[in-house]
Write a protein that binds this DNA or RNA. Structure first.
Length: 425
RNA sequence: GGAGAGGUGGCUGAGCGGUCGAAGGCGAUAGUCUUGAAAACUAUUGUACGUUCACGCGUACCGAGGGUUCGAAUCCCUCCCUCUCCGCCA
């Protein structure tokens, strides 16, 4: 949730900045007007309540019965007046909350401006695109040939966009998990396995149920609970209604969980293989920082992503995501895209987001500022470690050999005990 | 799933219709004392919102949301959570 005070203080500025994220000025204006109305009524209501409290106190000390009853009777009018104001204010408050909640995070001053994906900017490229002196196979051809991935049976069992991982693919998954934990725990990240289900209220507070995001979530009606789309969603609330000590910041987590996505509205898109699936495992970095440190932290998380990609020797590029293509909660976002030989394209495999105080305000995550003595909102950042299914695609395709085998990245070999995935027959 | 007991400030724990934002204790912070420390003593010690140039003032918060009442931490209803026993289960 964005800070209502910003809208109150400089409506035009916020209108302008949010428009870069595709927000209509009228939607911001609406919040402004509702807030004004809300405060007007609040003042009347609180005045009446103060009066009520005063008279109530008088009643309690009034010994004379007649006087007492007279006072009690005189309260009736005030009482109904208060009730009326309360009704009015709760309606406005609901409306205000809803309208404010629907606004995405304000893009950072230095965020790249743009209207769509096409305006995203490649800011770095690493490692040459591999050259093959044979016809490359896509990950499904490789996966089926080496008995690593089965989507056909998964479709019968669970439906489209599900998969079985088998044999070395499974070992690769756990090698990747080991690899990430080994690297990041050394750097001070706290390992975490969070819940994969989340209550609607907390999901809303994380800014992950707003607008069209809701369509992307699996919801279990019987239990009024959602399946998470990322470990991020339940890692943030680990510190909801929490006050950090300044010395504990930055607090960094490396979380592992399964992610669930409905992929609504993507029919016909990436239908082959395991690029776009309903269920996949993912490692996710998450940081809580002091406000003044979040920019640096954002770069740090990106550098962690790059480090690990470089260790796997996968060709990638870093993209700065433009304002209108950013996530709802993001003030600034980078994506890491990995080269997919069969598509002759870089495809998004990671994202790295600074949500500033947007999510922190929602879940009420603060820290004690020693200088001011006040509790102030922290900044929260999230970044993909590896989205396993997608990085598996990249490994299988980029490391494929002429003889049909696949080379296991060197840093993962020790976890699997071999360097090559060969045909079983 | 069945039966019962509970949720109060950083923690512990009283309060069970008005004088309660809430006793007492612990902890924390500052000061006195001390060569220093401990002990002792003294003081301070929640959050949010509104309002004010500011000192301040007001409102709300005792798991959450409703209700009764002139007045609710206290009474009633719904929900959430924790604990104990039984059942089930990895």
């Amino acid at each position: 949730m964005i800070d209502i005070k910003l809208i109150r203080e400089d409506l035009e500025e916020i209108k302008n900045r949010l428009s870069k994220k595709g927000v209509k000025p009228a939607d911001v204006e609406k919040v402004f007007l509702l807030d004004k109305k809300y405060r007007d009524i609040l003042q009347i209501l609180e005045g009446d309540k103060a009066e009520q409290n005063r008279i109530s106190e008088e009643i309690s000390s009034q010994k004379d019965n007649e006087e007492r009853n007279k006072k009690i009777n005189s309260m009736q009018a005030l009482k109904s007046q208060i009730k009326e104001s309360e009704q009015k204010i709760s309606e406005i408050e609901d409306d205000l909350k809803k309208s404010l909640n629907a606004l995405p995070n304000i893009p950072a001053e230095d965020a790249l401006e743009g209207d769509s994906e096409d305006d995203n900017k490649v800011i770095k490229t690493f490692e040459d695109i591999p050259k093959f002196d044979f016809t490359v196979c896509d990950h499904m051809e490789i996966g089926e040939r080496l008995d690593l991935i089965d989507t056909k049976q998964a479709a019968l069992v669970s439906g489209a966009r599900f998969f079985y991982l088998k044999n070395e693919a499974v070992l690769l998954e756990f090698a990747l998990v080991q690899f990430v934990f080994e690297n990041l725990v050394k750097k001070g990240f706290t390992p975490l396995v969070p819940p994969v289900m989340i209550r609607p209220e907390m999901y809303m507070r994380m800014g992950r149920l707003q607008m069209d995001q809701k369509e992307e979530r699996y919801y279990m009606q019987n239990d009024d609970i959602y399946l998470v789309g990322s470990a991020e969603h339940t890692t943030g609330p680990l510190h909801s209604d929490y006050v950090f000590s300044e010395k504990d910041l930055p607090k960094r987590y490396i979380a592992f969980s399964t992610s669930f996505r409905r992929e609504a509205g993507t029919y016909g898109k990436d239908t082959k293989g395991i690029l776009r699936v309903h269920q996949f495992d993912k490692l996710e970095m998450f940081s809580f920082t002091k406000p003044e440190d979040s920019k640096e932290e954002h770069k740090f998380l990106l550098s962690m992503q790059e480090n690990m990609m470089q260790e796997l020797k996968l060709p990638y590029q870093v993209v700065e995501v433009c304002t209108n293509d950013m996530g709802f909660t993001d003030a600034k976002q980078y994506d890491v895209e990995t080269w997919i030989p069969s598509q002759e394209k870089y495809r998004e495999t990671h994202s790295c987001s600074n949500t500033t105080d947007f999510q922190a305000r929602g879940i009420n995550a603060k820290y004690k500022n020693k200088e001011t003595g006040k509790n102030e909102l922290v900044h929260m950042l999230n970044a993909t470690g590896f989205a396993i299914s997608r990085i598996l695609i990249a490994i299988l395709e980029n490391n494929q050999q002429k003889d049909g085998s696949v080379k296991i990245p060197q840093v993962l070999q020790k976890f699997i005990g071999k360097d090559l995935i060969k045909s079983k027959s």
